[in-house]
Amino acid sequence: MEAEKKEKEDLVPIFIMGKRYEVPSSLTIQKAMEYAGYQLIRGCGCRGGICGACATVYRFPGSYKIEVGLACQTVVQPNMYLTQIPFFPATKSVYDIEKIKPTIETLVKAYPELLRCLQCNTCTKSCPMEIEVMDYIAAAMRGDVARLAELSFDCVMCGLCTARCPAEICQYNIAILGRRLYGKYIAPKAEHLASMVKEVEKGRYEQMLRELMDTDEETLKKLYNEREIEPEQAGEDWTPKDKTYL
């Protein structure tokens, strides 16, 4: 009886697509929908705030403000009324990453609507990841690919910005184009990586690895126990004493 009464007190009303349900106050919107009886198919992915499947919009009675969140990350609040946006049509430009350049021309050619931005900042206000969306769109309009990449890095591509943009821009697809351009053409290349790939392809490690593959478990354990551990606080220039197997 006590437990039941306590549970009752802990319940808060929420409105899922306008319909009232009472759910425990500690739940996220996602778990609250399941509690209410929904078997989720769309609108649920990683359940950890990174896949962008569960974009949700809600309001409170008497408030003009449109609130946004990821259903798996947002705790319910009394009287919120909400819906999930399980899918939103988006433009996706098809390009050959090998044949494009990190310039404003590439961005505008792929997404000409980029230039329609009204600078209303609705995208930024709609972002559940607190990304400065309008700022990265502004960077894109200036052709500042590095800034576009940097500002948009945390994007989970949930589509809320795109759903609300009055200029009909698909911000998150422009952002990934920018990040790929940055990663491929602007970020300096890792030279040590290229030379390692060359060494592997030349077969430098072939014999030592084949020998290891034929080694018995006891010897392997010995080799494992004796391997030199790079100290955690070591700098980039650290080298091991034993260089036989490098």
Binding site: H192, L193, E199, Y205, M208, E230, T239
Partner: peptide, 9 residues
């Protein structure tokens, strides 16, 4: 990837 201190071995 860093041949000065590491290898597939």
């Amino acid at each position: 990837t860093k041949g000065t201190k590491d290898s597939p071995y």
